[in-house]
Computed example of a mutant assay.
Amino acid sequence: MAAPFPPTSRYAAIEVAMYEDTEGRRSPYLRRRFIPQPESFALLTEHEVTEGDRLDNITATHLGDPEQFWRIADANRAMRPDDLMEVGRRLRITLPAGIPGVADA
């Protein structure tokens, strides 16, 4: 069963499984999502975090959609997006997983 999430969601490709308890009650749940290896993403640019930056604003500027913050988290191997907002940190802004970049672009 496909996950009931929009295609832009980090959970869109995650399978919905079914748990059945000892009394026969069934409960749907999402299978575990693993963070992809950042090296597998094609780099678009980098962004250096400055005082007052917010991840949703960075995402809106570079990816056009503030709700895609999870793509920046994945590209920078972050489980918690707030961990990315250290002043001076260089964030990798990448293409989505599975989309190859253009060499020497």
Rank of each mutant, 00 (worst) to 15 (best):
M85D: 02
L63A: 12
D65W: 05
E86L: 07
L84F: 04
F34Q: 04
A60Y: 15
P38N: 10
E20H: 06
G88Q: 06
P66K: 11
R54D: 15
D21R: 00
I14E: 06
D82S: 09
E46H: 13
I58M: 05
Y19H: 11
H62E: 13
D21A: 02
R54I: 15
T61H: 14
R89P: 01
P38F: 08
F34L: 05
R77C: 04
T45M: 14
I58W: 00
A12K: 06
R89C: 02
A42K: 02
E20P: 08
D74T: 01
R26M: 04
A17E: 07
F41Q: 01
A17P: 01
L84Y: 02
P28T: 10
E51I: 14
S40Y: 09
T45D: 15
L30S: 03
R26D: 02
E39N: 09
R54F: 15
G88R: 06
E51T: 14
R32G: 04
L91V: 01
Y19M: 07
R25F: 11
A17F: 02
N57M: 15
R90Q: 07
R92E: 01
E39W: 06
Q68S: 12
A78I: 01
G24D: 06
P38W: 06
F41I: 03
P28N: 09
M18Y: 09
I58Y: 00
A42W: 02
E20F: 09
A60W: 15
A75S: 12
E46S: 13
V87I: 10
D74N: 07
N57K: 15
